[in-house]
Each structure stands twice: as C-alpha cells, then as structure tokens.
Design a protein around this nucleic acid. Structure first.
Lengths: 245, 245
DNA sequence: ATTGACTCATTGTCTGACAATGCAACAACA
DNA sequence: TGTTGTTGCATTGTCAGACAATGAGTCAAT
C-alpha cells in the first residue's frame, strides 16, 4: 500500500524529461535535436545513458531519424503505433472471435462517418485502391496489403484520429492472419473485391446506410470464409511480419 | 520506388531478434533473460549496444524488470500500452469531439458485452469501485481515477482484449482532461455516481439493454457537462500525467 | 551551374572500468 | 528449529574515452 520508493534511472529520466519537453511544446515537431554530446551534457548524463533514453523515445515514436543523421522531434506515426499495438494484442492471446467482434462493431461505424466526411481526394483514394486490387487479385499477399490499406483509408476518411488508432491494430492483426484463407478459399477474393467496390461507391455517393450495410455483409462474409476454411476461431492469432512494401 | 537500402543498426537488430524469439515462443513469458554480458556476447554486440536494444523492448512492454535486477520476458501490460497510445493520440491533435464520438460508440457496446459475460468477481469489482467512489466524491482527482478504473473494469468484463486496447487510450485521454470539469460543474460528480451505480446494477442483473441505455445517458451527460463548463470541444486534448496512485 | 574532391561533425559502436545494489549463502541468535 | 544479521558475489547502471563510417557542408575545377 505504500508508495513504493521506485528508483528512477538515468535513461528513464532522460526519456521523461525529453517527452515532457515535446508534449509541452518546448521542443517543436520537426525540430532537430541537439547533438548527442550536447544533449548529454545538458542533461547531466553521459552519451551511452542518453542514448538509452533516446532509444526509448524512438520506439514510442516521439523522435525519428531525419535523413540518416540527426534526430528529429516527431509525432508518432499512426501506422507504426498500430503495428506495435497489433503485436501487443497478439501476445495477449486475442483470437479470431475477439477481433471479429470488434471489427463488426467499428468498421460499419467508421464507414458511416467516412460517407459523411470523406473529401474528394479520400474517395478517389478508395477508388484507386479498388482498381489496383482488381489488377493484382491473384497475388494473395497483395490482396491482404490492399485489404489493410482499404480499411485504413476508410478510417482516415472518417476524420477521427482516435478511430484510426482503435481500428488499425485490429485490422492489421486480423487480416495478416488471412493469408491461408485466400489459398484455401480462392473465391473469397472476388467477394472481397465486390464488397470494396460497393463500399467505395456508397461512400462516394455519401450514402452512409448502404455503406454500412455492405460493410456488415463484407465482414460477415469474411467470417464465413474463415469458417469454410476450417480455421480454429479460438486459436490465438499472431501477427505476421509484413513483407516490407 | 526502389527498395531503399536501409541500414540496420546493431541495437535495432538486437530488438528484432529478441522480439522474434519472444513472439515465436522460444523465450517464454516469465522467463528470466541471461545476463547482459552473456546476451551481448551471444548476439555479437557489446553491452552498450545491447542495452539500447533492451530499452526498446522494455518500452514496447516485451520485457520488464523482475524484482529489481534481472530482466524478465513479459506480455505487454495493457495499461502501459494504453498510456503510450493515449499520449500518441494527444499528439495527433485529437479533440474532445473525436474522443467523445468513439466513446459514444464503444462504451455502450462494451457494457452490453460485459452484461453478458461478466464473472462474479468482475461485477463485484464494479460494485466495489462504486462504493469507493461514494466515499471520495469530493476529491476531484480521485473521481477521475475512479472513472478511468470503472470503464476499464467494464472493458475487461467484456472479455475481449481487443476491446480493452481500443477503449483504454480514449478513456484515459478523455477523462484526464476533465479535472477542470468537476471544479466548474460540481454537480456532475453526483450524476456520475448515479450512472455508475445503475450501470453496475444492470450488469449484475445481466440486463444488457438497460446497461447500454444508462451508459449512453452517462456519456451524453458527460458531454453536457463539458458544454456547460464552456470548454472548447475543438481544442486538442493533452494527456495529463497521472498522479501515480 | 554542375560536378567532384575534401573537411569536418556526428553517429554507431567498441573497450574497459567502477560504484551501487540485490541475492544467496552462511553464521549467530532466540 | 526458525529467525535475524552479515558477508561475498554477481549483475546492473553509469561513466570515460576512443575510433571507423558516413552525411553534410565547403570549395575548387570544369
């Protein structure tokens, strides 16, 4: 019950201080950090210690390599954050049912918002993705990349950063597990193409209701494919590392 | 368009290799890592380099200090992950409207599932939290801590790890921004207490519909409080560091 | 104006070291 | 016998200093 006197290590200090400076806006986004030697001196630690702190910040996405040299203050890249979360989610033992349940709730919601708010460029992006998919339908890995990209584009079109953060990890994890699906149930890819096509059209027409319906159908269909393929829906899903595109 | 020959640094290698070993299950959860000297030698790097990699893994939650010495393989702590995400979300410029929108969608959904699935212990936890709140209603910070804990407990009762991951950051960020709210609109805390009480009762009664309705009311009410207080709902919300409990 | 060579700063990495501290074994005691 | 104090050791956190590789900037040559 006591406030447990936890020792704060140097590298932890470094990370916290720098994080505070960034969040408080004293270190502005895009700004270049001082050299490691200078920073270390300013913070009263040595370079190895400083670097441990920097590595921590880099993982949480608050700093990024600019070019290849200097480090740059940055806002966390949603995709990178999503990837980290997806992996974390995989390690908690989440299974298909868990993920599908969330998908079924969030994706129709997202596409409804997207239908209201999508900009011209964003709907165009959806059409582009669909067209691209039509061309690479036989490449399983490409289909999955497209699937992730399409749902990601919808989330972004919904113009809500919190929604992106909530949906992206689930989608990445779920879709990454479907490589075997398309091998086992080849027909699934055509149903996917049609669904995406209809969804894109509905979003462009600002028809939220139709978009939601197609999305629901799409996600139910996804589950059916998983059933047909005979996969175990209670088995933990693990994130498969993307073939870096 | 070219596959950009990206240099892979030693510390990055270390992190990836170890991560791979953990995900693949060759390093089991709870297992203690070898000493830094041994690990460094095994991986063909020196200790400073190794430690940078370890720091990265520590931030992503894959390893944790056991006791105070040796490092231990671990599954990411959802709360810690949520905190990281909440901060990331804050930096993307998410505002009250964004967060509330998600909240309004996910929390009723979560409480509906909780009403179906909550175990005896989990419903008891809800009642305990409500009782505790009733005792500390005048302490603003305590009210907020309770609020986060209560919604977290519901997510967990919904028995879906993906849901926890999706809701926790939003809740943490949103509620952390309400300290001023209770100061400005003192009555809000009583309405919050009532809502939580009703929700806990509905979950215990396995009455999903009532639970959802009260949750919706609760979240709408929250918004009204925010309006009455005259806060700007389009201003970015920043995460306030918790007073470590 | 563009290209090329050159300089220099900075990073990634290494070597070696030391103090602090937690853990385990052991001794001393009730 | 069970508990407490002591001691030694292993391991971590941190430091100091060094060096090669490489990116960026400078300046001359074309």
């Amino acid at each position: 019950m006591l406030p447990k006197a936890e020792k704060v290590y140097g590298y932890d200090q470094v990370a916290r201080i720098l994080e505070g400076e960034i969040v408080a806006g004293r270190l502005k986004i895009g700004e270049l950090l001082p050299t490691e030697t200078d920073l270390a001196e300013a913070l009263g630690v040595t370079r190895p210690t400083l670097r441990e702190g920097l590595r921590a910040l880099e993982v949480s996405g608050l700093i990024r390599r600019a070019g290849a040299k200097r480090l740059q203050v940055a806002t966390p890249d949603p995709e990178q954050v999503a990837m980290t979360n997806a992996r974390a989610l995989g390690l908690t033992g989440a299974n298909f049912n868990h993920l599908w349940e969330i998908q079924m709730e969030l994706e129709p919601f997202a596409v409804g918002l997207a239908a209201e708010r999508a900009t011209e460029a964003e709907t165009q992006k959806l059409f582009d993705l669909v067209a691209e998919l039509a061309g690479t339908l036989s490449d399983d890995a490409a289909v999955i990349r497209h699937d992730i990209a399409f749902h990601g584009a919808i989330s972004r079109a919904a113009a809500n950063p919190a929604l992106v953060l909530a949906t992206a990890p689930v989608g990445q994890l779920l879709f990454s597990a479907t490589l075997d699906l398309y091998r086992t149930v080849p027909a699934a890819r055509h149903r996917l193409l049609q669904a995406h096509r209809e969804i894109a059209a509905a979003v462009a027409a600002r028809d939220g209701e139709t978009a939601r319906l197609w999305m629901q159908r799409h996600i139910r269909d996804f589950r059916r494919g998983y059933e047909i393929a005979g996969f175990d829906m209670n088995a933990p899903i693990e994130l498969r590392r993307q073939h870096t595109g």
